[in-house]
């Protein structure tokens, strides 16, 4: 059974289309990273999934339950961490954890206590006295400690220091090892790269890429750096070569598809040193948005 399935999920705010026909699946026990620039529709997706926003059309299921029609049933197996840790300021951390655990209906209190230790959270303080990072820790401990079958995390490490971010990664790893599914929306590409089995990339409300990182890299341009004994050859007519940059005897380019024609030209041109590299997630991400990371509206938007 899939943890999350959306079919044609669309959300409009007046004339603005925030989400357009989203088809997405997250399998049980899978960690899916959800990427996109600000305003791409990531949080809208999550709010539609959780019934916090009503979809204009389409369907969203959580473990086979219609999340729009029967949200409270669907939420029995879900724990959610929003990006804004706006808890009740007059509750203490312990009170907030108790409340969220009770409302969730299930909490592994021993594991929750362990998480409190791991995240170095002092639960005796009032929420109003917490820093932003500590408030985020309360929500992370509540969600992870629920042992829910699906964790929906919307930029969950906002405000965490690098040490705590490492604890978060370990905790998500533990959750995956226990068979929990994780839907992770984040701007921290290294985090997504480290944790995710698959990555979904959203642009202007549309899913433009989804798959494993290996698949994406395979289908994406390969970065080539070559050094020649003499002037580099003209590669502009070699099939698949783009982004050609020549500096003295050094050459950089990307190649899409078969590298055989390129290798033939390079071998015949006295190449001194050759380095090929798969694109990082950051490069894949930027390839969809341009160097500025800005969103390009689809032509039919």
């Amino acid at each position: 059974m899939t943890a999350i399935r959306t079919q044609g999920l669309t959300k409009r705010y007046g004339a603005i289309v925030a989400l357009r026909g989203l088809d997405l699946e997250v399998a049980e026990g899978e960690v899916v990273g959800y990427l996109g620039p600000n305003g791409a529709g990531k949080t809208t997706t999550i709010r539609c999934l959780l019934g916090l926003a009503r979809a204009t059309s389409g369907r969203a299921e959580i473990f086979g339950v219609d999340a729009q029609a029967r949200p409270s049933v669907a939420h029995r197996r879900v724990a959610y961490v929003p990006g804004e840790a706006n808890l009740w300021p007059d509750l203490t951390g312990a009170e907030a954890l108790h409340l969220l655990g009770r409302v969730q209906g299930a909490a592994d209190t021993a594991y929750r206590d362990e998480l409190v230790e791991r995240f170095q959270l002092d639960p005796s303080k009032k929420v109003r006295a917490y820093s932003k990072g500590n408030r985020q820790k309360v929500l992370l401990v509540a969600a992870l400690g629920s042992r829910a079958d699906l964790l929906v995390l919307d930029e969950p490490t906002t405000g965490l220091d690098p040490l705590m971010e490492q604890v978060f990664r370990e905790s998500v790893g533990d959750a995956r090892a226990r068979g929990q599914a994780v839907f992770l929306s984040s701007h921290i590409l290294s985090e997504v790269e480290a944790l995710s089995d698959r990555v979904a990339i959203l642009r202007a409300g549309e899913l433009v890429e989804v798959g494993t990182l290996a698949d994406m890299r395979h289908l994406s341009a390969l970065s080539i750096e070559a050094t020649f004994d003499a002037a580099p050859p003209d590669l502009s007519r070699v099939p698949g070569v783009t982004g050609l940059v020549v500096q003295g005897h050094d050459l950089r380019c990307q190649v899409v598809g078969s590298v055989e024609p390129l290798l033939g030209v390079l071998a015949a041109s006295g190449v001194h040193q050759l380095l090929s590299r798969e694109p990082s997630l950051e490069e894949l991400f930027l390839a969809h948005y341009g160097e500025s990371g800005s969103t390009r509206e689809p032509s039919h938007a």
Binding site: L50, G51, L52, V73, H75, V78, Y80, P82, V103, G105
Partner: peptide, 8 residues
């Protein structure tokens, strides 16, 4: 949000 995102 914290309540409605749970089984409430």
């Amino acid at each position: 949000d914290h309540l409605i995102a749970r089984p409430v």
